[in-house]
Nucleic acid binder design. Structure first.
Lengths: 228, 228, 228, 228
DNA sequence: TATGAATGAGCTTTCATTCAT
DNA sequence: CATGAATGAAAGCTCATTCAT
């Protein structure tokens, strides 16, 4: 538990040391970074229950005890990995700048961005899947995670309003429902690639398959929002 | 491993005993059924790695050894649970009878069915999520699972052709892409309900939310297929 | 434990039913025989600790419970196998009829018999090895086994006396020591064949190797007893 | 399996640390040594199948997990015990220095050495017996064991040649056959002491019995090699 | 900070034995 | 006599965590 560890010995990870870090903290930062990198791989591949602390230690090249020194427990380490993954995604979303685009282009870009993000960050899909298997209990537990806004809804609302005003979009589109749909189309493809590839005898990881899928999704969404 | 167990002493589960089962086999069947029921709950809630054989034994009210007697190993039991879940879903799909309906109604029914199935069989979503985390390795391993056809594609193809002929559907819709989209919309909603509910501060498990979601999904898909 | 079982439900094995056995006892006898045959193989191959009751049941084609019905416990079954093996060997020894032969021929025959017996009854060697690993505890426990005389010592004594009288043997040969030596030469070769074959890169199970070995042993022993 | 463990996390036992071992490795070495000592007793007394890891842990006074930490598995631990026992015996054999002795003395010394070694290393006999029950499978598996030469054959060959040249030995003695005979006489006596003591009502472990036995064996072998 | 060693609870699985029919 | 089902103790092994330096 995160709480337990904090009450005991958990060192605040030296993520953003103000001023110039000396040699010691630089080495420390490197260790922490290596642990996180290995942990992300391990948790991503095997989930929280399936992940092994020994494996993370070995893969990171760092002594096992250091994991406890820096992160307190396996669960806390998992939480840190999860927080960073969410933070990275939120950051990318916030850098999208859809508002400046023509509404149709904005929607297209959003759909493509969603697919793109999972292609470039496959860990995210699996971390989400794992966290959902755990009923989002770590997401709920983390104050840092709870603070992260899903800013896209507001942006989407703006885009929809603009599109409506410009008479290119139909009226009354619920931004949350639309966002869910866009999220569904992108997430599902990557999260279920293993079973789908097996059941359909196609390799969904191939770029060609991915492009066709994205094109279809864009088509589907744009057809929906467009004023007929 | 299924193979290992079969090579040893695994009893063939008495699924379909020809003729009237006597008292003994009836009790045996009951034990097997109780094990399966408890196993489904456990694997669904915690995944393969997180599931505990002890817990399955306790919840099923059956001696732990019986699990090994009937199913050989934890992995084999998981595989059996997975096979049954898939079989149940395929069976439901095969009973859909979409071909007799007007094309638009058929598509609507298919979308609603997908949502409905997950509402009534929440285990399926989580088993799929878990199996995808394991890269579909058990799906690949099982010959029974590999044989199960995804019959819906053919049906969907027929419906699309009919709709096209009747000039109610647009031309050139890829049935697989459309099926993926329908599957995405339904699966995502349930698989990601925990994180979505947390992040959006809404309880997606509420019937009202579900109905709104289904309506949106139907709208999205029908708008797409309809000839404009 | 044999004692425990006898106090409870152990059926006296129907080994020698006086008069004509009816159908029931014939089937019973067959079951018992099949169990014993499979048990001998299992205990011979794996020793008492390594043997599996399940395996004996499967190999014998008899229900596992029958093993307990007839023999009480795994240990009792082992004891029965051991007793029968010893009895068979003692019987063969008693049928040797060395006394009628010229002393030198008698000794030669004894040596050859010892080798021969292990060739034809390889189980005996391994049962002896196993029982020695257990510090002969079952041999000690069994009254039937304790009663079995090693009649060969008396015979050997007679042969040595005769040889001495006929001036073909040296004087003062200790029959027990000589017997031990003969037993050593034969037993060792078979009991240690696996490690010897491996360490020396020769296959001691080959007839040619065996014949050479027997010839040497005969030579060794006869050279010893002969009057010079 | 040795391989499996090595592929995983088995620590290389710190047998010969170059340089001065610090306190930490000294404690580690002690733990490893205690485990080995207890394991030798357990495997010697009960064989591989009968031995209990719990018992080894308890007798060694070391946490059970340490056994897996240092040796990987029960089988690997057994293999290590076996390797060490063989290595010790081969080392003693190599230190015999028979070549400098008069041929008859050399043979006598060899016979006495064989008996002596088993008297001083009773574990060896039982480990050999156990390994033979397992068809020498660990002996075969171990590359270290396969490399250990049975140097005595060469030495024996030299001695026999010298004896022949000096006209004290008969011609044409096969060194391997002679070695087998010497090995038989010594091994059998100790390996079968439990059953022999029981069957003959004598306690073969008594020094007096042992001395008489050795004298007989020496007599037997020397009579054989001597030129008449 | 860093490391190897150690711990104890708990995990999956095995096995001899017994029950109930 | 015979059978499949059931039992409980214990086996080998794993794993997150902590100790000691």
């Amino acid at each position: 538990m995160a709480n337990k560890a904090i009450l005991k010995t958990r060192k605040e990870p030296t993520t953003t040391a103000s001023g110039a870090p000396d040699q010691r903290s630089r080495r420390s930062e490197q260790s922490q970074h290596q642990i996180l990198a290995a942990a992300e791989v391990e948790f991503t591949n095997k989930g929280l229950a399936g992940a092994r602390v020994d494996e993370i230690a070995e893969q990171s090249g760092v002594n096992k005890q250091m994991i406890y020194y820096y992160y307190g427990s396996k669960e806390d380490l998992y939480l840190t990995v999860l927080e960073r993954a969410y933070a990275g995604m939120r950051k990318s979303e916030s850098e999208l700048n859809l508002k400046g685009l023509p509404p149709l282009d904005a929607i297209r870009k959003l759909v493509e961005f969603k697919f793109d993000y999972y292609i470039k960050n496959p860990a995210m899909v699996r971390l989400l899947a794992g966290e959902n298997m755990l009923n989002a209990q770590y997401l709920k537990k983390s104050s840092r995670l709870r603070e992260m806004q899903v800013s896209l809804i507001d942006v989407l609302q703006s885009v929809l309003s603009a599109g409506e005003k410009q008479k290119v979009f139909r009226k009354g589109i619920d931004p949350v429902q639309l966002y869910f749909s866009i999220a569904s189309l992108s997430y599902f493809y990557f999260a279920n690639a293993p079973t789908l590839s097996t059941a359909f005898g196609r390799n969904l990881a191939e770029p060609k398959e991915q492009k066709a899928r994205i094109a279809h999704a864009v088509d589907l969404i744009l057809t929906y929002v467009r004023k007929t």
